[in-house]
Design a protein around this nucleic acid. Structure first.
Lengths: 235, 235
DNA sequence: ACAAAAGTGTTTTACCTACACCCATGG
DNA sequence: CCATGGGTGTAGGTAAAACACTTTTGT
């Protein structure tokens, strides 16, 4: 073993996850009731420390697995928070990740360990430390990314309708779209496969279910979705 | 002082900076010859450890000041690198920043301490650790950001011509633009103020110098620049 | 006068928006 | 049979791409 660097201070390194979900109506985030001091009992993001032989991404996956029971979650690092006083206990930097999950796959049974709860992104409680700031930034990054990448499908169940998609987009971008144009553009991506079945929960006529063309989706993850009117107004 | 967290491992936290510059012809990055072990004498990014009572951004500013002598540099955090084995000496995570500087303000006099050198982004030497990956990611982020934000002006001197701007954009986006369309779009942003003087170094006719309308620029940092053909192909 | 870069004009095409309209069906 | 959301058709405007053309001036 070589000699260590003599300069620099060692610090704890944490990950914090902003978990997004969509219940068909509103974009939500998953928060937990903190189970230890300080700030025990307050709402916070789900997080954890990065272990000795683990990358931050692995740590985030581990944390998410513990919270949701799910593997293979869409995960993206968006910012690292380093204010010296951000954690009052000990100098800790936190690497922020946002995750997109299908809210239906989420197991309520795992809930109780963490006293987790889904809050609409528009009205969640005040969080500990700098977690409010983290949520804001995660939301911006979600917008930014989703403006040109078709990542929002990660939030939807296998079968979904176009009006449902539109509701999701409208909540993410905090705006409204013309339904005709939205539907046409969405279809023109060739990312959707029409199913026979209809969802009649929102209208008499019913809206056709679609599923994602996974093949096409994988090939075009990097590609266009000119769905959002002014992507340049973001971030 | 409260009790510390009993879980988690402490690690060294570093910052590494990708410093971009533009010499009128090509986009370049500033690299240094590493002055200590391991990998002494190899090319690397400029970096440093984050100190006890310092944020990562402050650390990056400090490092850049030491390297370039400059304050108020455009600086943006883009990714944190955490592979457990990325630094062979000791577990170290590194927060990556990219910086945009006016290459003319850079003082060569400070050079020698670090054996720093500008390399074209298209042909720089192999770097230590994961620094190659860092440069790639920084470049992507620069593209992504510059596609819709007018940050590339940070790379230019006070006075510049439109053909010079075009060269810069072409090198950043690794493409070519129609000069007519480019010039029209650039002018239509109302970000430029035409000067009396011409630059005749590239043609007999000469190209008018422009300067940035700083007021308009500050107000519209967040705003549009529809200069790049397919911003969606990026990242 | 001519070469070469700077800058302007113009045509074509693509697509985005807005909005009118038709469709399906449960009550 | 009508109210309600789902979905299609279409006219008009805007802007971007392509490229021809004019300008300027050192040699």
């Amino acid at each position: 073993m070589r000699k260590k660097y003599s300069v620099g201070t060692k610090m704890k390194v944490a990950v914090d996850c902003i978990v997004f979900g969509f219940d068909g109506n509103r974009l939500k985030i998953l928060l937990i009731k903190r189970g230890f001091q300080p700030e025990k009992g307050k709402w916070s993001l789900m997080g954890g420390f990065v272990n000795k032989d683990e990358s931050a991404e692995d740590a985030a996956k581990r944390v998410l697995k513990k919270l949701t029971g799910l593997d293979g979650i869409y995960l993206e690092q968006f910012h690292t928070f380093t204010r010296p006083d951000r954690d009052p206990v000990q100098r800790t930097i936190s690497i922020g990740y946002f995750a997109l999950i299908d809210i239906n796959k989420y197991k309520d049974s795992l809930h109780d360990n963490f006293k987790a709860h889904w809050f609409p992104i528009k009205e969640f409680p005040s969080l500990i430390f700098d977690h409010n700031e983290m949520v804001m930034m995660a939301q911006n990054r979600l917008q930014y990314k989703a403006a040109s990448h078709s990542i929002l499908f990660e939030l939807l169940p296998e079968k979904f309708t176009i009006p449902m998609l539109q509701t999701l987009f409208e909540d993410v971008f905090n705006t409204v779209f013309d339904k005709g144009n939205f539907s046409r553009k969405m279809l023109s991506t060739n990312l959707l496969i029409k199913l026979k079945e209809k969802d009649k929960s929102n209208s008499k006529k019913g809206a056709f279910y679609y599923k994602l063309d996974r093949k096409h989706y994988q090939q075009n993850l990097h590609k266009i979705l000119k769905l959002v009117p002014n992507p340049n107004d973001l971030l």
